[in-house]
Structure formats: C-alpha cells, structure tokens
Design a protein around this nucleic acid. Structure first.
Lengths: 142, 142
DNA sequence: GCTTGCTCCTATAGTCGCTAGAGGAAGTAA
DNA sequence: TTACTTCCTCTAGCGACTATAGGAGCAAGC
C-alpha cells in the first residue's frame, strides 16, 4: 500500500497547526513545498505530518523559528552529535528561567499595587501612583 | 518662571522612552500632539514627561497599550472611583500569574529534556525525541 | 447534469509595538 | 563658514501569524 496523499485540512487536524499557518510555513521555507494534485491542491505525506508536529511542539515550548530551523536541520542528520540540539535547548531553558524571574518580580509588584489600593478615588489610587512613579517600586528589575 | 519647552531628545532622555517611540506614540494617539517651535520642532512640557514615564513604566510592567490608554484616561479624572484601574491591574496580575505557571511547566520539561540527553548522537537525543513526540511530555499544559 | 456546501487556492493587508533607514532642514559651537 | 548634532517626515521592516476577498475544485444528493 502506497502513501496516501493528505490534504492541507487533514494535515492541520492531525498536526494541530492551522491551515493558513501551514501555508505560511511553506512560504518562509520552514516546510518544503509539497507536490500538487491535478487540481493544484497540496499533497502532504506522513513525513510532513511529523515535521509539522515537531514544529508545533517546539513552538509551544517557546522555541523561536530560527532555533526550530536548526533543530529540524539536525533531525535530518541523525548520525551527528547531539551537542548542538542540547545547547539550543539549554540556552532556551536559561532564557525561560530569566523570563520567569522577571515575571515573578512584576507579579509581586502588581500584587502589592492591587492590595494597597484602598478602592477610593483615582487621585489616591496606588495602582495609578505606582505606575506614575517607578520610585515606589520595590525591585529595579524593570 | 514659565514652563520651558522640552525637545524630543531631552524628553527621551528624561522619560527613558526613545525618540522614534515618542513620535510613534503621538501617531497612534497615545500622546497628544505637542505644540511646535518656529522651526517645526516638538515642544514638550512637564506633563508630557509624566505621561511618557507613566507609559514606560506600565509597559515595563507588561501592560498592553489598550490597558494603558484606559489607565491614562482614568488619571485625567482623579475624582472618579479607582475601581476600574484596580480591575485592570488585577486582570493583568492574573494573566501574568498564568504566564508564570505555563513557563514553569515548560522549564520543567526543558530541564528534564536537557538532563536526559546522553550527549550521544542525534538519533538518540532526548531533546529531539521529546520535541517530536508530545506524548513524552509530563504535563499537558502546552 | 445541476445545485449545494465544503474545502481549497492565491494574494493582499492587518495585527502589536516598535525599530531602522532615507533624505533633508534646523540649530549650535568653533 | 564649516562641521556637527538634532530634528523633521515618510516608508518599510520585524516576528509569527491571522483575516479577508474573490475565486476554483470536489463530493454528495437529487
């Protein structure tokens, strides 16, 4: 049994990547241009599905397109050392951890702001006052 | 002593908002169009500086432009109840906390991925394998 | 064969929050 | 006067899509 052609809609359903996004990925060269049917429709195969799922998953994990491009290139050379894949992931992990630290400082500031708001008038509102004056913040990380 | 006119460069230095960004804010109506000098240069005043600083600080705290627009409108009506400012900030806080939770799940996944990588060949690399198969993830939050 | 309704096609423009660059005019210091 | 800096407008670009318009293909029912 030969590989059945998969339509773009079917590919979208199976991979979780939306139809216009698949076309967009083709346009920017992240996905190869698939063969077309007589009626000019894209015909995907199982390999395309894997690639789409890989991309979707990496995007969900917050990898940038350039990283994904590199990771995809690595998957095409399975005999190479995985050192590069590892270092991309490790760098990404460091970035995420920094983003978490920053967001935690922000949420602390916001929580303090909201808690100290006496629910009175705007002219006394801590939310407004803190926003107007960075000096009222506890951390300098923003 | 009357209010001295402040140039856009000076306003940028004092507020921490870059020159093109100030012009951009004027363009999208976030800042009022200031009066001009004979030579067609923008003349800002202290009130503009406060507004710019307010915007910058709110941006640093991750507020979106629409939120900032609302908050700025509130500052112009100091006698109103601060209920709205409070709810904008509270909603924003909830969003940030959700983002933190998501990022923490991601960083856990990434850390596991990197730790389990045996630094062998790509074809055995956990980083690649996990990306290719969501089933290998511990959490469903992405 | 015809109609209905779905999926697919291309191409363009819009989103957000800026940032960069071109090409020129105004202001300032030596 | 010359050189340098700052300012002006306008346009286009970024990333990663998303939306819309205006068609064309295709399958099922009648």
């Amino acid at each position: 049994m030969t590989a059945r052609a998969i339509s773009i809609g079917e590919a979208a359903r199976q991979s979780g990547v939306k139809v216009p996004t698949i076309r967009f990925y083709e346009q920017i060269g992240l996905m190869p241009a698939p063969p077309r049917s007589e009626g000019n429709r894209r015909q995907f195969d199982e390999k395309d599905l894997s690639r789409l799922s890989f991309i979707r998953h990496a995007r969900e994990l917050g990898f940038e397109m350039d990283d994904i491009r590199e990771l995809l290139a690595l998957t095409e050379q399975p005999q190479r050392s995985c050192h590069e894949a590892d270092s991309i992931a490790a760098r990404h992990l460091r970035e995420i951890e920094m983003r978490i630290a920053k967001l935690q400082a922000l949420s602390g500031e916001l929580r303090r702001m909201v808690e100290e708001c006496g629910h009175g008038k705007v002219c006394e509102c801590q939310v407004i006052h803190v926003l107007a004056d960075h000096g009222k913040c506890r951390s300098d990380t923003h």
